[in-house]
């Protein structure tokens, strides 16, 4: 049994707890949260040992790994403390407020020799995994341009302030929403290393951006457009998509549907010339416990298997999340010149 403790039982934390609670190889040894009410419910109905001080929790419960699902600004100090104690860490995205903090943690994790993972769950979505496989195999030739998009109804009116509306806590569309798209592009093609222009626009929020539009580049000369808006209520829930144009074809994919066009007679097994459509149902492995998308269960199972040494542990490492933080910071910096 892998002994797990969790810090931060908010929306993502509860989702993680539920999936962890159903995992056959996990024992939840402690939960830490600042809300008295949440703690009482978890103690009374789930029977978890709860704490308000995460250091005390770690000292008392000796977990093999800790899940960190607190506002972004706390990731750095908490993860650093956990790494000092050589504890395996799963932390929510985005990783840190800036790439300086991220690289420090990535290096600390490497030095400590512990398993480290960040919750960019899109990498466990069947369609996006297949996009990566196709791109890495050169199936659509040389990549020339891409478009990464995400739209959804998070902030659709002027409303009360939470940590998500505070830039110093890691709020805003770029950090919270666009990070998913940037991380996907970084993984599927290569890390975004330049930004030629970007607009961070507030629509309803007072202090943070509600949309991000950026013209970006990758070292190899590939160009791309990032277009993300979390104030778009024409979407029922977050919709993330990538379009990748290559010399031999084109890929359009979201989390449900993958469309690939092959120009010529060279195409991978299972595909044909012209348009091909595949659905996530064909590309997804079943999970042992389903809560809100196979990818959420799959990323946790992957982390647990990394801790027990059953996989190569190379998805969503701190190192990859640091590169994403670097790309985010480029886009942010460029926007201040506008």
């Amino acid at each position: 049994m892998v002994k797990i403790a969790l810090i931060g039982a908010g929306k993502m934390g509860l989702s993680h707890l539920s999936i962890l609670g159903a995992h056959p190889n996990v024992e939840i040894v402690g939960v830490c949260d600042t809300s008295k009410m949440v703690v009482q419910v978890l103690e009374r109905y789930s029977g978890y040992k709860c704490f308000s001080d995460y250091q005390k929790m770690v000292e008392e419960t000796h977990p093999d790994a800790v899940f960190v699902s607190v506002p972004t600004k706390y990731h750095y100090p908490m993860v650093k403390e956990l790494l000092k104690r050589r504890i395996n860490v799963f932390t929510e995205k985005p990783f840190c407020l800036n790439p300086e903090e991220s690289i420090e943690l990535a290096q600390l994790a490497k030095a400590a020799g512990v398993i480290n993972q960040v919750g960019y769950h899109n990498k466990f979505v069947g369609t996006f995994r297949e996009v990566k496989r196709l791109v890495k195999a050169g199936a659509i030739g040389e990549i020339t341009h891409f478009q990464g998009e995400a739209y959804g109804p998070v902030v659709v009116k002027k409303k009360s302030e939470t940590w998500r509306s505070d830039p110093t806590e890691g709020g805003g569309c770029l950090m919270d929403y666009a990070s998913h798209v940037i991380d996907l592009i970084n993984d599927i093609i290569a890390p975004i290393e330049s930004c030629k222009g970007s607009i961070l626009k507030s629509i309803y929020s007072k202090n943070v951006d509600d949309s991000v539009y950026a013209l970006v580049g990758i070292e190899s000369g590939v160009s791309g457009v990032i277009s993300v808006n979390w104030s778009d209520e024409t979407y029922r829930k977050m919709s993330t998509s990538v379009t990748i144009i290559g010399t031999e074809g084109k890929i359009e994919s979201d989390a449900n549907e993958l469309k690939v066009y092959f120009k010529g007679d060279k195409f991978p097994k299972g595909y044909s010339k012209g348009w091909n459509v595949k659905y996530v149902t064909d590309l997804t492995d079943e999970v042992a416990f389903y809560l809100r998308g196979e990818e959420y269960s799959a990323q946790i199972d992957y982390f647990i298997k990394s801790v027990t040494g059953e996989n190569s542990h190379d998805i969503n490492t701190f190192d990859s999340a640091w590169k994403t933080d670097k790309s985010i910071s480029l886009i942010k910096k460029q926007s201040s010149y506008v």
Partner: peptide, 15 residues
Amino acid sequence: NVITDLLLGLGMNEF
């Protein structure tokens, strides 16, 4: 299902 399964995973069977 989201609520049923959330409670199920959390062991909150009483709800």
